[in-house]
Amino acid sequence: MTRILTYSCYDLLRSRWSYAYFLFYLITTLALLYFSSDLSKAIISLMNIVLILSPLIGTMLGAMYSYNSREFVELLLAQPIRRRDIFLGQYLGLAGSLSLSFALGMGIPFLIYGVQVSAEVWNFATLLFSGVMLTFIFSGLAFWIAMKQEDKTRGFGTAILLWLFLAIVYDGIFLLALILFEAWPLEKFALAASLFNPIDLSRILIMLKLDISALLGYTGAVFQQFAGSTRGMFICVLSLLAWAALPVAGFLYSCKRKDF
């Protein structure tokens, strides 16, 4: 598996996509830091970008890579190597190289601006962690979709729709529910609903650092417990890890019975 991982990584790190992704984050982060000259403000602006773009790029490149490497996979499958290892290796190679582009692109400017010795270092680390987790989760989901859906166009369509749903439609429904059922005790529902969307989950994880003052303004015992202690952070991180494991388990299960 490590061999496949190395080669996938190697292959991807040379592709234009990796460079483009790296450069995008590098330039955006530099620009934000330059114009705001305030680390916490730049982190907030980047948070909005990371929460949208990491899932989108993870989804798109995950689907693209899965479909484009079909024949290569066939070549590999004919070699004495486990199926599981091929797909896991490819997935980790893709998610790893994307994460690397992201982490370097965003990290280098922040390091230049001295985030490691500032009070914002944990906020930055949380943002970095969320971005990496989202990359892993969404490229995993795309792998799963590509595994289930033979048709490339349909596969891409499904992946984009899934992204659109989780990035915006879900929150819309969520918001409507919160407003319509305002009279009901909603805090448990609100917290639970957030756990079922990895983008919301990452957002809340970052907010537990950045906007804790505002979050603690909400009256509700469960909510207070969640936000007021390290428990909330713990739950968010665990849920994100579970989210990352889910698509991997999914595509590894479907790959076993798939024909090539």
């Binding site: 070549l75 070699q79 004495p80």
Partner: peptide
């Protein structure tokens, strides 16, 4: 499969690799 050499009908490879790298990779695997 260690004992089988298989030539697939359509050959496609990781597009960014060089030929000698691909050979090394298969040797490696």
């Amino acid at each position: 499969r260690r004992h089988i050499g298989y030539l697939p009908q359509i050959a496609r490879f990781p597009e960014n690799l060089r030929v000698h790298e691909l050979i090394r990779m298969i040797q490696d695997i």
